[in-house]
Amino acid sequence: MTKAEVILAISRKTGLDKEDIRNTLDELVSVIQNSVAENQRVHFSGFGSFFKKKRAKKIGRNISTNTAIVVEEHYIPSFKPSKFFAAKIKTTS
């Protein structure tokens, strides 16, 4: 499902203007990105949490040249679904 499809689905269910939904969704994403970048966990009850996860330094491989490279310690965004959300997905086919 694309962003445009999400906006259309919300608009149909709520009757709100698509442009208002697009602006709200863009702002929601921006708030989540900025909060996670500032090391704050963003939690939605019944849905899950967005947070920053640390990846340790490791040795990787450049497959083009078959040489070892060092991948420095870095952070990645992560999402952990709530137990309710995970259970709902498990029970659907």
Rank of each mutant, 00 (worst) to 15 (best):
A37R: 13
I32C: 08
R55N: 09
V6H: 08
V31R: 09
R61D: 07
N39F: 05
K18M: 07
R22H: 13
S30A: 09
A37P: 02
S49H: 03
I32P: 00
S11V: 01
R41E: 08
E5Y: 12
S82T: 15
L8K: 14
R12W: 05
E72K: 14
T92E: 05
T2F: 12
A9H: 04
K54M: 06
E19I: 08
I7K: 00
T24Q: 05
L28Q: 10
E73G: 09
L8H: 05
N66E: 04
I7C: 04
I89V: 13
I59H: 05
T14A: 01
P81G: 14
F47Y: 09
L28N: 11
D26V: 09
F85D: 00
D26C: 09
K83E: 04
H74L: 10
I59P: 02
F44S: 13
F85P: 01
A86P: 00
A37C: 11
K80W: 05
N62Q: 06
E73P: 02
K57T: 14
A56F: 06
A56S: 11
A9T: 12
K80E: 06
S35H: 00
H74G: 06
A9R: 06
A86I: 00
G15Q: 11
I63S: 06
L16W: 14
K80Y: 03
I10C: 01
F84A: 08
L28P: 03
I32D: 00
V6E: 03
G60H: 10
V29P: 03
V71K: 12
S64P: 02
V6W: 04
V29Q: 12
K90E: 02
S78G: 09
I21G: 00
K80V: 11
V70Y: 03
P77G: 13
G60S: 14
S35V: 06
Y75L: 08
A56P: 02
V70Q: 11
T67H: 04
Y75G: 04
N23I: 12
N34T: 12
G60R: 13
S45F: 11
S30H: 15
I69P: 04
D26L: 11
K80N: 10
Y75V: 10
L28I: 10
H43E: 15
L8E: 07
G48M: 03
I32G: 01
K52G: 02
R55L: 09
R12P: 01
S78T: 12
E73H: 08
V71C: 07
V71G: 07
I69Q: 08
K52Y: 06
S93C: 11
A86C: 00
E38N: 05
H43M: 07
S30Y: 08
N39G: 08
I59Y: 05
F51Q: 02
T65F: 09
R22W: 07
S78E: 03
E27G: 10
F47P: 15
S49L: 04
V70S: 13
I21E: 01
N66A: 12
L28H: 11
N62D: 08
L28M: 12
A4Y: 10
L8Q: 12
H43D: 07
A86S: 13
R41T: 10
L25N: 04
N66L: 09
L8C: 06
K80A: 15
V31W: 08
P81W: 01
I21F: 04
R41V: 06
T65G: 10
T67Y: 00
T14P: 00
K83R: 13
E5H: 11
I76K: 15
S64H: 10
N23A: 07
T92K: 15
A68Y: 07
